[in-house]
Every structure is written in C-alpha cells, then in structure tokens.
C-alpha cells in the first residue's frame, strides 16, 4: 500500500474538521481549548508530512512545527489561566454564561 502526502493531508483535514466542530459545538471553555489543540495538531501534522515528502533536507516544516508547538503551549497555558481566573469570578466555565459584553 502506497501512503503518499495526500493521505497525511486527508488525515489532517479530518482532524482539523473535528476540532472545528468541537470548538463551535462544545460549551465548556476547557473543551473548546481541547478542540483548538486538535486543530493545531492537524496543522503540525501537515507541515511535518509535507516537509518529509517535498523538502526533506531543508526541514523547514519541522522547524515551523517546533514554533507552532511553542505558540500553542503558550496559548494553552494562558487560556487555562484565563479559565481559572474567570471561574474565580463567576464560579462557572460555561461559555454561554459569559455574556457581559452583550450589546
């Protein structure tokens, strides 16, 4: 069985779409953050696969994946800290209840 880059891209697309659905559908802040992580991982997978198949010696995709990981780690740390801070204020992490910005 031949597994080319399009197989990886298809898998990444599936993971990304699932993450997209989760980010929209779930109403718990933590669950939304998890879905965002899933989307980030799908992107990383794409970059690593294409780096391996297209420019294996340059490794640009791998380097960028490292930066993506840094950013998403920072994002998840900050996001969870925010969730904690909000929980302390409102005793809830339901996104539906955070509507003080209502116009």
């Amino acid at each position: 069985m031949q597994v080319g880059p399009s197989a990886f891209m298809a898998l990444a697309a599936v993971l990304f779409s699932l993450g997209l659905y989760g980010a929209v559908a779930r109403k718990s802040a933590v669950m939304v953050l998890m879905s965002l992580e899933l989307m980030a991982v799908a992107v990383s997978l794409n970059m690593v696969a294409l780096s391996r198949f297209v420019t294996p010696t340059e490794m640009t995709g791998q380097v960028f994946t490292i930066f993506t990981m840094v950013v998403s780690a920072a994002e998840i740390g900050l996001g969870l800290a925010l969730v904690l801070a909000i929980y302390r204020q409102t005793r809830s992490i339901e996104l539906t209840r955070m509507d003080t910005l209502k116009g």
Binding site: A23, V24, V32, T96, M98, D99, L101, K102, G103
Partner: peptide, 14 residues
C-alpha cells in the same frame, strides 16, 4: 450578532 458571547464571535470568525 451583539450577544456578547465569545463562542458566537468565534463562530463568525470560523
């Protein structure tokens, strides 16, 4: 549109 819910805004972006 102006519900003020973060997830609704997120939906628009996505």
């Amino acid at each position: 549109i102006q519900v003020g819910r973060v997830q609704t805004y997120q939906r628009y972006i996505l």
